[in-house]
């Protein structure tokens, strides 16, 4: 299978956007170079992956691990919001407060 092995800083910028991380220009350039090296090194992986090989997503052979549909107590509200960067309260209602949303849900 063909793999492109050179990444430009534009590619890295697009990936950083997908991953929601601000990167500096210096980081963009540095990562582009470094990731190119990694991709070079992993090229042999793609080469070894013949079509007839069944991929393994998990070393375990377990299936059908289920939980019973029985309610257990949820967390106390104090614990829910203990670590929250911003909350808003109105009477008995408390929410996580987040900045205005630009994008669309999936």
């Amino acid at each position: 299978m063909e793999c492109p092995v050179a990444l430009t800083s534009t590619d890295v910028a697009r990936l950083a956007d997908l991953a929601r991380i601000d990167l500096t220009v210096k980081e963009l350039e540095q990562f582009a170079g470094e990731l190119g090296v990694v991709l070079d090194a992993v090229a042999q992986v793609s080469a070894a992956a013949r079509p007839d090989i069944v991929p393994t997503s998990h070393a375990l052979n377990l299936t059908n691990v289920f939980r019973d549909d029985v309610v257990r107590p949820s967390m106390p509200l104090a614990d829910v919001f203990a670590m929250a960067p911003a909350v808003e309260q109105d009477g008995d209602s408390t929410w996580f407060r987040v900045p205005r949303i630009l994008g669309e849900a999936a």
Partner: peptide, 16 residues
């Protein structure tokens, strides 16, 4: 195992 009951106070039916 949090309850799915509709209409509870916000964030009262959450866990880790």
């Amino acid at each position: 195992a949090c309850s799915t009951r509709f209409g509870a106070a916000p964030n009262s039916q959450v866990c880790p």
